[in-house]
């Protein structure tokens, strides 16, 4: 009946309701809801509907790397278990219960990661973080709760106001935090002891996909010989292998395109160098922010594995080469 169960709407609602939830978890939860409401009677119909739903989810959100990771993981799980199915209904029930327990455990993932990462924060050290990541904040809060004394620099990341959000959270936990310009990363790097970032996705070779600016920080950290740690839950491991920045699914031709000059007014005033009053309104010089919101500045970037020192995941602390091992085990 309810083929009109709108998985995307459900997903969005979930995100609004629980701000702490991460995208892949919300996606999986929605898919579980879909199973609940599914009226499919055959296996193939069922599988199709799940696949279709996850496609819709992926295309609905612009920055969908982590979302894809979650969906793919769930799909893989379903596919793998579809073989020895005795009873369809029982199987569905099992899937639902598993899915729900996963969602519950997902939160616990973060705590596990925080526990793994806390020993790396040494007393008296200075940490540089990037914008806002829930897991990173959790890790730092736990470290502060463990009575470690440390300081934090956070990049402003103005388009998402991530830096400001992070600073609020950390200051509330009693951690001295300073917001720095994104452009000032090279300036402060000699004062910090380590760099810590979250992740949208972790790709097959152990590389990192994260909010724009992470790659830059990784390069600067490597040049300054500082360790670069990434924090990622294991459901963010995604089966991608980007060759370079532009090999990501989030890339489209509009990104960082050069704007055309629109009117003769613009052209003329640019030649003269004098802005005419008409052109002041006509000249739509797009700021970076404008460009971002219109999709022509990227939201995420890719950091190759040789810049990453270690990854903290709920599967343990991994070197980048260990990530592919896990992925192979899963998708084998």
């Amino acid at each position: 009946m309810d083929k009109e169960f709108d998985v995307v709407a459900n997903y969005k609602t979930l995100l609004v309701e629980s701000p702490e939830i991460s995208m892949p978890v919300a996606a999986i939860e929605s898919l579980v809801e879909l199973i609940k409401h599914s009226k499919a009677t055959t296996m193939s119909e069922f599988m199709l509907s799940i696949k279709d739903a996850s496609q819709r989810l992926k295309s609905s959100v612009r920055n969908s790397i982590s979302l894809s990771a979650g969906c793919d993981l769930f799909l893989r799980f379903v596919t793998r278990n579809s073989h020895d199915v005795a009873d369809f209904e029982t199987w569905k029930a099992t899937l639902i219960s598993r899915g729900q327990s996963f969602v519950e455990k997902a939160d616990a993932c973060r705590y596990k990661i925080a526990e793994l990462g806390v020993p790396f924060i040494r007393d008296g050290s200075t940490v540089l973080i990037h914008a806002h990541s829930r897991v990173v904040s959790l890790l730092l809060q736990k470290a502060a709760a463990d009575h470690k004394r440390f300081k934090v620099f956070v990049t402003e990341s103005s388009q998402t106001q991530g830096g400001i959000r992070s600073a609020k959270v950390l200051r509330a936990a009693g951690i001295p935090t300073t917001i720095i310009l994104d452009a000032a990363v090279g300036y402060v790097i000699d004062k910090v002891d380590m760099v810590l970032v979250g992740a949208e996705g972790v790709v097959e070779n152990g590389g990192l996909i994260n909010q724009i600016g992470s790659y830059q920080m990784a390069i600067v950290a490597k040049a300054a010989n500082k360790p670069f740690y990434a924090v990622a839950e294991s459901y963010k491991f995604v089966r991608l292998f980007p060759l370079n920045q532009y090999d990501l699914p989030t890339y489209n031709a509009d990104t960082l395109s050069f704007q055309e000059l629109n009117t003769d007014h613009d052209a003329k005033s640019l030649e003269d160098g004098t802005p005419s009053s008409a052109s002041q309104t006509a000249l739509h010089l797009k700021t970076a922010e404008d460009q971002t919101s219109q999709g022509s500045n990227p939201l995420v970037d890719y950091t190759p594995p040789n810049y990453i020192t270690l990854l903290f995941t709920d599967l343990g602390v991994l070197t980048p080469s260990g990530v592919s091992d896990e992925l192979i085990k899963l998708y084998l």
């Binding site: 793998r80 899915g99 294991s234 896990e326």
Partner: peptide, 20 residues
């Protein structure tokens, strides 16, 4: 139980067990 066949192949740390 169907999930057991996976056990010898994967260690307890496998991603797979997230959902198992």
């Amino acid at each position: 139980e169907f999930h057991h066949h996976a056990a010898p192949l994967t260690t307890s740390s496998s991603m797979y067990n997230l959902l198992g």
